[in-house]
C-alpha cells in the first residue's frame, strides 16, 4: 500500500513474471549474477523478478535495459496485458492506495486501464484499432467514461489531436494510412483521452526516424510539463532516457541492478552492467 503522506503515485512491490513450470530455484539461479534469465533447473523463463519501485507524482521514471531484460514485461503486467506470477501494485489514485490492483476484478481493472493509466506501445497496432478512424480511437476511450454526446466527443478528440500535433483535418481518416510518427501521436492522444494521471510509454520512439523521434520526445516532454502526468518510460535507448527522465532504473536479466537520478547514473554508473551500457553508447 501507499502511504498517502508521500508523493508516490504508483508503487510496485516484488513483481515477478515467470513463464514455465517454475521451481524453488528459479529466482536464485537466474539474474545478472548468473548471466541468464532461464532457470537451469526447470527451464522456466524468469522474465522479471522481485521488481519493487515507486513512481512519484509528476516525475518521469525511466527503465532502461537491453531487449529481453524484462522491462516491457513489467509494463505489460502493470497495464494488465500480462498477469504477474507474484507481486503487488498500488495506485494512489485508486482505493486510497490501499488496494493491490492485481487482485481487483476484471471490471475494476478495466476502469483502471481506462481512467487511471494510459499506455503507448512500441507497436501502434497494439494501441490503436486500425479499422477505426483516428477520432474513433480517441472516442473509444471517451465512451468508457460515459460521454455520449457526439459533439463533445469530437471536440475533445480534436483538442487532443491538436495537442499531439495530428492535423485535425485527418481526424476521420484511418490511422492505417498514417506514418509511424503520426500513428504514435494518435496513440498518445488516445492514451491521454481521459486525463489519466499515469502514462506508460513502452519504447515509443523505437523504429522511428531520428527527426521524428525528436518530435515525439518533445511532445512527451511538453505534455508532462503542461499536465504534470507521472510517466514510466521504458527504453533501450539511453539517449531517450537522458532526454526525458528524472530518475532511471537499469534492468538486466529480469532484475533492477541500479536505480537513481538519471544524471548520476549516466555520469557515475555504479553497477558493472550500467558502466558497460554507458560505455557502449559513447
Amino acid at each position: 500500500m501507499i502511504d498517502n503522506s508521500t508523493e508516490i503515485a504508483l508503487s510496485l512491490q516484488g513483481i515477478s513474471k515467470i513463464y514455465g513450470p517454475s521451481c524453488p530455484a528459479c529466482i536464485q539461479k537466474t539474474g545478472p549474477e548468473m548471466g541468464t534469465n532461464i532457470c537451469p533447473e526447470c527451464g522456466s523463463i524468469v522474465a522479471c523478478a522481485d521488481i519493487s519501485l515507486d513512481l512519484h507524482a509528476g516525475e518521469i521514471l525511466g527503465i532502461v535495459g537491453e531487449s529481453g531484460s524484462g522491462k516491457s514485461t513489467l509494463v505489460k503486467c502493470l497495464y494488465f496485458d500480462l498477469e504477474p506470477t507474484y507481486g503487488e501494485a498500488y495506485l494512489s489514485y485508486y482505493g486510497n492506495g490501499r488496494l493491490n490492483i492485481f487482485s481487483e476484478t476484471s471490471q475494476k481493472k478495466r476502469y483502471i486501464r481506462n481512467h487511471i493509466m494510459g499506455i503507448v506501445y512500441q507497436n501502434p497496432h497494439m494501441g490503436l484499432r486500425m479499422n477505426f478512424s483516428c477520432g474513433g480511437n480517441v472516442a473509444e476511450k471517451l465512451l468508457t467514461a460515459d460521454c455520449y454526446h457526439l459533439g463533445k466527443i469530437r471536440h475533445r478528440a480534436s483538442e487532443l489531436l491538436t495537442k499531439t500535433e495530428v492535423p485535425v483535418a485527418r481526424m476521420d481518416d484511418l490511422p492505417r494510412n498514417f506514418s509511424g510518427g503520426m500513428q504514435q501521436r494518435v496513440q498518445i492522444a488516445k492514451a491521454m483521452a481521459n486525463n489519466p494521471p499515469i502514462l506508460l510509454l513502452d519504447e515509443v520512439t523505437t523504429g522511428l526516424d531520428v527527426s521524428v523521434q525528436a518530435k515525439v520526445l518533445d511532445l512527451i516532454k511538453s505534455l508532462q510539463w503542461e499536465l504534470g502526468i507521472s510517466m514510466l518510460v521504458v527504453s533501450h535507448d539511453l539517449g531517450v532516457v537522458r532526454l526525458l527522465t528524472n530518475r532511471t532504473a537499469v534492468m538486466k536479466n529480469g532484475r533492477i541492478v541500479e536505480i537513481g537520478l538519471t544524471d548520476q547514473i549516466l555520469e557515475d554508473p555504479q553497477h558493472v552492467y550500467t558502466q558497460l551500457l554507458i560505455n557502449s553508447l559513447l
Partner: peptide, 19 residues
C-alpha cells in the same frame, strides 16, 4: 458483456455517424 465493455459498439455507432 460480463465486464460491460461496450465501447467498441459505441465506436461503431460513432464511426457510422462520421462516415
Amino acid at each position: 458483456h460480463a465486464e460491460m465493455d461496450y465501447s467498441k459498439l459505441w465506436v461503431y455507432l460513432y464511426e457510422d455517424i462520421v462516415r
